[in-house]
Amino acid sequence: MSNIVELRDVVKTYHLGEGIKVEALRGVNLKVERGELVSIQGPSGSGKTTLLNMMGGLDKPTSGKIVIDGRDITPLGEKRLARFRREKIGFIFQFFNLVPLLTALENVELPMLFSGKLSDKEIRERASDLLRLVGLEKRMHHKPTQLSGGEQQRVAIARALANEPAIILGDEPTGNIDRATGRKIIRLIKDLNETLEQTFIIVTHDLAVAKASKRMLFMADGKVYATPPKTALTVPIQVLMEERRQLLLAELGWLKSSLLALKERKEEINPNIFSQAFSTYKARVEKIRKLLRDYATLQGGKGDEA
């Protein structure tokens, strides 16, 4: 029972209205032990953010069960979820998400103020300690706008640590900072994981983050895999095919109008040149039609207007 996170058959379906459904998670099973540093990679739209939302108690699954630190959070109401979040979860965001109106110190104090378990003095001391821990003792009274991206992310990490959470969830924590600074952030996360045995689950595109993690997971089409799944690339290829198809359709349109123009001016043009141009155009049209038919069968019989 050292599992700090346990997801069982978690499904999340979004209804976008007019009968359109998006299956963001299609039965996720996942166990994370205390003290792990887990990275999750996967293409856009594979359900990474939805998974974070589920584990962080920001959103509720359509079905399945989520147990965090021994507690089933699936049936919790809004108020209890808010309490759960501030006691058990720390968040690190791609865009840092600090309160722009508060200083670094005040931002770190915020979760402790919400939970209201410490005195003012204790809160202030802990917030300064945490900022010292992430190496920002000299920037405590700066507002987020006066801090660099890396510094802001450090403040966010200090804030995530404030209430000694069971897990810290990271959403592309290096996604919006330069590589060198990103390395330092990764170093900090690794240190915190090793010295404090702080559990991290981080969604990322950054290979450096993935390499630093103790366990790599992969997501594709709403499922979690332990190895990079072959299907992981289906989405981009489909996207590429679709782009190509659109280009071909555009070319086809142009050819058709050119052919029309050519026919109209048949009398004025040298018959040899006319027949040469006509057959060239015609051949290209045939070629495009064939390509479009091929794409249609590859994409699963999508209708073809060509």
Binding site: G56, K79, R83, R86, V99
Partner: peptide, 14 residues
């Protein structure tokens, strides 16, 4: 809106 979402993420109640 995002700031509000973030406040809620770090534990603010309604």
């Amino acid at each position: 809106r995002r700031e509000i979402g973030m406040l809620k993420a770090v534990g603010a109640e309604r």
